[in-house]
Structure formats: C-alpha cells, structure tokens
C-alpha cells in the first residue's frame, strides 16, 4: 500500500514538473525574470574564448559575456549562475532548459534560428583564416585552389560558410581550437577558419603564421539564444540590451577587456565587434 502511494506521488510530481517546464512564469511579480528558477538566471557559455568567455586565476568566469550576463541579472535583481558548457552542447542545454539563455559570442544564422530564438544582435564578427606564412594560402582568393584541407571547429559558423561557398575544400572537423591550430602549423591543414581575435592570439604564439581576413564574408551578428518556448525572457533581454547600449555599456567592456585588440583590428582594417552598438 505504501509503495503504491509513493509511486502515485512521484507520478504526480513528475506531471507537475512537466507542466512547469514550459517556461511560464511561476510568479506574477512584474519585475522578475522569466527564468526556470525564480530569481536565478542560468546562463550557458563556453569558457574557452578569452577575453569574451574565460576563467580567471581562481577558476571563476570572467570576460565580456559574464559581464553582460551580470548586467542583465542585476537589472532584474536576479542571482547569476554561469554554466560552463562545451560549444556543441550549448544549444542542447538550452533546448532541455538546463540553462535559461546562452550568451557565448554565438553568431545568429539560419540553421541555429530554426531551433532557438535569438535576441537583437549586440555584436558583429567577421571570419579570418589562420595560416602558415609559407603555406598555400596567401590571399583570400587562394581558397579556390584544388586539393585544399581546412580545419574547422565542430559547430562553428565557419563551417557553414565553407560548405556553402567552397566545395573544393576537404574539412577536418575538430572539437577544440588548439588542435586546429596545431594541424595548420604542422601542415596537416592549409588553414583554420575562425574569428579574427582567436586567429590573432594564435598568430602571436606561433612563429611563421599569418592571419588573412575574409572580406567576402559578410560579418555575422551575435545574439543571445533562448528556448523557443520562452519569448518572455527574450523580450526582457531585448529591453535590457537597448538600455545597456544607450548607456555605452559596450564601450566600457571594450576598455576593460579589449583595448589592445581594438587597436589591432583598426590597424588591420577589420570591423570591430561592437562598432554598430557604439
């Protein structure tokens, strides 16, 4: 008899849990965030992309995205919890409501927009090629050559660009940046396609490497990603974003984390991430 009651309770709780997973607000206080757990904003990001998302010496999240997330949480008096998730696990984590939002320098594109909703864009990124200076690729046009091998990161926007425009290139899909860079430096791949910042950072670490910017690539906007069933939280973020931009929030972030990089980009004539926002 007892076990039957317990089973019944579990079933009821299960059903109750299901119904509260829809993302509806459980509290009617107008000023609180539409998050899964009341008063707590769970943000997913991959802490492997300095200085946008990384860890400080204590292992705590630091960088552009953590700051942006904190500002969002503060606006609604919510507690911020950052979950460190591998890149190709970010969207699935959103889909299962493990996190409320993904703020991880993620580009808005068609494929991703089919499974998640994106906020207004808050940054733009172009793509660059990381190559060996003595390699086959000297300019962007060299990508048309036959028999090229390109290193891409699994799930990265560069992959879609290459797949659509350069069917002559064989792709080596790896799960982390270091492997991609190594493949290029060891001549196993002719180039690594990624964002300009990472390319520059790695160029500094590797003698004999160069960075080539892809002018033919239209810069892609970044946005925060939300579960399709939570339009309320998305609306709240957009409201906050407009205010943040108006108050020069991104200029402050650039000063804090990216002053050197901004100068570097200006010198190379590459569009800065937050130009539009500033």
């Amino acid at each position: 008899m007892n076990t039957k009651i317990i089973k019944g309770l579990v079933l009821v709780c299960g059903i109750a849990g299901l119904s509260s997973c829809g993302g509806e607000t459980t509290s009617e206080v107008a000023n609180s965030l539409s998050t899964k757990t009341n008063g707590v904003l769970k943000v997913g990001m991959e802490l492997a992309y300095p200085p946008f998302e990384t860890k400080d010496e204590n292992g705590d999240p630091t960088g552009v995205s953590p700051d942006l997330a904190q500002a969002f949480a503060d606006e609604y008096d919510a507690e911020l919890e950052i979950e460190n998730i591998a890149w190709d696990g970010l969207i699935p984590s959103l889909q299962t409501n493990k996190v409320d939002v993904v703020i991880s320098s993620m580009s808005i594109n068609e494929e991703r927009a089919q499974v998640v909703n994106f906020s207004d864009s808050y940054a733009h990124s172009t793509l660059s090629l990381f190559v060996r200076t003595d390699g086959k690729i000297k300019t962007e046009d060299d990508l048309d050559q036959d028999g090229l091998v390109g290193a891409v990161r699994l799930g990265n926007i560069g992959y879609y660009y290459l797949e659509e425009n350069y069917t002559n290139i064989a792709l080596t899909k790896l799960d982390n940046v270091a492997s991609c860079v190594t493949e290029v430096m060891q001549g196993k791949a002719d180039f690594f396609i990624y964002d300009p910042l990472t390319c520059f950072d790695n160029q500094e670490l590797n003698e004999g490497s160069s960075v080539i910017s892809l002018t033919k690539y239209e810069s892609q906007p970044w946005g925060a990603a939300f579960n399709k069933e939570n339009p309320d939280l998305l609306a709240q973020f957009n409201t906050f974003l407009a205010k943040f931009i108006a108050e020069d929030g991104f200029a402050a972030i650039t000063d804090k984390y990216l002053s050197d990089e901004k100068a570097e980009f200006e010198a190379a004539g590459i569009e800065w991430f937050f130009d539009e926002a500033e």
Binding site: D88, I91, Q95, V115, G155
Partner: peptide, 8 residues
C-alpha cells in the same frame, strides 16, 4: 559528433 553539431 559532426551530425550532432549540424543538427543540434
């Protein structure tokens, strides 16, 4: 992994 990354 590749299919997973493409199909989310």
């Amino acid at each position: 992994r590749e299919i997973s990354a493409n199909t989310f």
